[in-house]
């Protein structure tokens, strides 16, 4: 399992433009890091590079000795702008499927729905959910199938004040259990975190 994340001299180029160069970061178990920077600075690309979805030009991404392929397959959660939820399916169908797919069980999916107070919404089609409810549904996956590394892209944006602090508690619990969080944010994270600023 992932007990550390280290980026060394990472350079990512997208569409012929260099987003960032020589970026380094060491993250140990129990640590959170907030990625900040203006729009287009490459925060999302950095998260996707760590997840192995984007090729990077130079440098190295290591997961504390774990084999990157299996570490990515079983050790990290990615929550992006695009949540992969299908509008025509019910919230429960989607939560159940993504929990099972991430290695959780149907019971854990139920429990996660309770934690995020989604129970009254489970029978609704995803298209009927508000932006905040939909984000909570996407975040329920993180609770249903525990994985050490969370890569979060603007996780707080559609949440109201109460749910921002609730999600802060969930993040704190994950960190206390030896998790790692790398989050692209514009507002401060609700947990103690280092900051890595990406400049354009």
């Amino acid at each position: 399992m992932i007990s550390g994340l280290s980026l060394r001299d990472l350079s990512v180029r997208r569409g012929g433009r260099v987003l960032f160069e020589h970026l380094s970061l060491e993250l140990a178990a129990g640590e959170a890091c907030a990625l900040t920077g203006p729009n287009g600075a490459g925060k999302t690309s950095l998260l996707r590079a760590v997840a192995g979805l984007v090729r990077f030009e130079a440098g190295e991404i290591a997961f504390a000795g774990a084999d990157p392929e299996s570490a990515r397959g079983a050790g990290l959660h990615l929550v992006g702008h695009q949540d992969g939820l299908k509008p025509a399916r019910t919230a429960w169908e989607e939560l159940r499927f993504w929990s099972l797919w991430s290695g959780g069980s149907a019971e854990e999916a139920r429990a996660a729905a309770a934690t995020l107070e989604l129970e009254p919404l489970l029978e609704l089609e995803v298209r009927r959910l508000s932006a905040g409810q939909r984000r909570r549904l996407a975040l329920a996956r993180l609770v249903a199938a525990p994985r050490p590394l969370w890569l979060l892209d603007e996780p707080l944006a559609p949440l109201d004040a109460r749910w921002r602090s609730r999600f802060g508690e969930l993040m704190a619990a994950r960190l206390a259990a030896g998790g790692l969080i790398l989050a692209a944010v514009h507002d401060p994270l609700p947990v103690p975190a280092r900051t890595l600023e990406l400049a354009t």
């Binding site: 192995g52 299996s70 990515r72 992006g80 992969g84 939820l85 993504w98």
Partner: peptide, 17 residues
Amino acid sequence: ERDFEDGALDLIVLSPA
């Protein structure tokens, strides 16, 4: 196409399967 557009394909890739 749909899974690609809405991000589901990212999550399908991030699996031990």
